[in-house]
Amino acid sequence: MEDHKQTEITQPQPLLDDQGHLLNPGYCKRNHYIYNKENIKKHRWRIKEWDYYMISDGRYMTELNFYNISIFAAMIADVIDLKTGKHYNDLVMEPSYPDKYKMSHAADKPFQFSYYKFGRKAEFITDASSHKLFFKGKYRRKDFKIDITGKRLPDQESITVATPFKNPHCFFYTQKLNCIQAGGTIKIAGQTIKYDPKDTYMVMDWGRGVWPWRNTWYWSNGSTVIDGKLFGFELTWGFGDESAATETAVFYDGKCHKIGRVSLEKDPEKERWMKPWHFISEDGRLDLTLTPGYHRSNGLIFLKLIGMKSNQVFGKFNGSVLLDDGTRIEVKEMPAFAEKVYNCW
């Protein structure tokens, strides 16, 4: 497996130069990039921005996602009972343009985003230590409400990556916030689902960028408590030129431990999605196996020209990781997910 550089950005700096090129590809444990969106000159109608939250206690998985990809915008709410497979969702989609919605310039900085369309209401409120999520919509003509608050540790680190592509005007800029303990309620179809912060975790996937039409990526993420400390991992690869940094990290007690590139021992698409996924890192610090318990195939690519197709599995992770100081963390029956996604948009 080829070793990759891990170029750490440690000082505040602009993301893009005057021509819209990435100035310094790399990663941050705290987001030091300044998102100067106004410098995007070419492909402006290809700008993509989203705020995505996933919340799960191992039984119920909730997704709240707002994205604006210039030609259209969408607000999506999903709840899945991972035990029974029951799926509840609501979706609003509308034509859009690059600057129709003002979205945040960093995932963990104070910001309030509100969306009101077609009888739906959504609010994402970020402050110094929390994320408050609210959604009101419909499921089969009945009220569908989500009200969840996630709390970050004081001075918590994350992983931010700025990734280039062959086209110098393309880039991917993302920040992942892990190990957010979450609590709240979901009211849907005559039932109330309650999330207890003791065993419920939130991840925020915050993304901005301009990239080529066709892409494939792998993503796996999870959080839990091990030995009384918050533990999590962020594993993403296959998207853009990762020679300066990979989007791979382990989190423990609020600190980010950067690891090398991660890959799968076998392609799950060829091996069947519900067989174990074995994740290993090039530096030998991560060795985890996911045993799937639930598989979701989602999306469609129309005429091989536009759309998204994902295969996402939820299950239990077992294995070990090494922290920066050599401490070995044993992972046992940790609920988390992994996915492989193709997209043309």
Rank of each mutant, 00 (worst) to 15 (best):
I148W: 02
T149Q: 09
T149A: 02
G150W: 08
K151W: 09
R152E: 01
L153T: 07
L153R: 10
P154L: 07
D155T: 11
E157T: 09
T160N: 01
P164C: 00
P164Y: 00
N167E: 07
H169P: 03
H169V: 02
H169D: 15
C170L: 00
Y173E: 02
T174P: 00
T174C: 08
Q175N: 02
K176T: 12
L177C: 05
C179D: 06
A182Q: 11
A182H: 12
G183Y: 10
G184R: 10
T185L: 03
I186W: 12
K187G: 02
K187I: 07
G190A: 09
T192S: 03
I193F: 13
K194Y: 13
D196G: 05
D199F: 12
T200M: 04
T200G: 03
Y201S: 03
V203G: 15
W206L: 07
R208G: 06
V210K: 00
W211H: 02
W213P: 04
W213Q: 06
R214L: 03
N215D: 09
T216C: 03
Y218H: 14
W219N: 12
W219P: 06
S220L: 03
S223H: 06
T224N: 13
D227E: 15
G228E: 08
G228C: 08
G228R: 10
K229V: 08
K229Q: 15
